[in-house]
Computed example of a mutant assay.
Amino acid sequence: MKELKLGVIGMSDGNGHPYSWSAIFNGFNDAYMKDCPFPVIPDYLSKQSFPEDSIFEGKVSYIWTQDKEISKHVAKSSNIEHIVEHYPDMIGQVDGILLARDDYEHHLEISEPFLKAGLPIYIDKPIAINKKQANKIFSLQKYKGQIFTCSALGYAKEFQLTDKMKTEIGNLEYVEACIMKSWEKYSIHIIEPVLKIIGDQGEIKLVNKTISNNKHIITYTWDSHLVTTISTLGESPSPIKIRLFGSKGYKELVFEDTFYAFKKALQHFINIIKKEDPPINQGFVMKVVDMIERGLES
């Protein structure tokens, strides 16, 4: 299959994905990337070897952001050839879209022309913060698997349990996970890996909420009697961490390798386009959205 041409769409406040996602495909220009407004990005990119560590099957060829000067800087930093005036201008020019913005309130509006055109699209997390909006976006799919959406932390190597670890933990009895920043945008980063770790626990039968000062501590009790607590801590410094308490032992998992997680997620999107991997599980996505929605203040 020929190299896929991709278009990237940005920016949203506090989110540097157009720089990093594009660089994972294209490599980067250090002279410009050093001025990236998100210093963590050039830091972790500099630890990789390019082009060896890039994704070879695709290239980000087009970019749109709401600010032409930002578009120019991202393009120079991440070796993107074309800047478009309007994001629908990418239709007919690319094989897939990276909607690299986490302002979920604009996901429907921005994704709609691409979905109607039949282009596969990676929609940054969260696709929506309520089931009604998520279903509206999914209803625009022309075919199963047209939409890819996730938290890249669901692919983090730190959150993958080996058989040995599962044996040491025993039957899960309690899980807690925490992350900085807002519930709406960041809870998904720990909800997804937690759901992948715990597997099918039935339905949520009870939700307890403590919400104060931009801190959300939400406890879910499942049919299986497993209890999981998901916390977003606002501006309080916190590592991204999952703690597992089992009948035999305890494990603490701490996220560290951003590049690995982003690359794995982007590679999965490419593999779906190439029909090498099955589409994402829409039911899983809706379960994640349901947990986000249940954690919001009434």
Rank of each mutant, 00 (worst) to 15 (best):
T162H: 05
M11A: 11
I41F: 06
T149S: 12
P120I: 02
A31Y: 14
L172D: 06
L98D: 01
I24T: 06
L226R: 06
C150V: 11
I179T: 05
N213R: 07
L6W: 07
T167H: 13
I292P: 09
Y32P: 10
L115I: 08
E176V: 12
K76W: 15
L253W: 00
V40S: 13
E235H: 14
Q93A: 08
F28L: 04
I280H: 09
G16F: 12
D223R: 08
I240F: 02
R243V: 08
W183V: 10
V175R: 04
C36W: 11
H82D: 09
R243H: 08
Y104G: 09
I147P: 07
K47N: 08
V288Q: 05
L253D: 02
H73L: 14
I121H: 05
S231G: 09
E184V: 10
E3N: 12
E105Y: 15
K251G: 05
G14S: 11
F284S: 01
G154P: 01
D163Q: 11
Q133A: 12
E276R: 15
E184G: 12
A128L: 09
K142H: 07
M165C: 08
S187Q: 11
N171D: 13
S139H: 02
I292Q: 06
S236I: 15
V288K: 03
V74C: 08
I240N: 01
I70K: 14
G154T: 02
P42D: 06
G145I: 06
D257N: 09
L108Q: 13
S139N: 05
G27K: 00
Y62L: 06
Y44Q: 03
N281K: 07
G283V: 07
Y87D: 03
K209G: 04
D163S: 09
A156C: 01
H73K: 15
Y62M: 04
Y155A: 03
D95N: 11
Y44W: 10
Y174H: 11
I230T: 06
G199L: 12
I191L: 13
D163I: 05
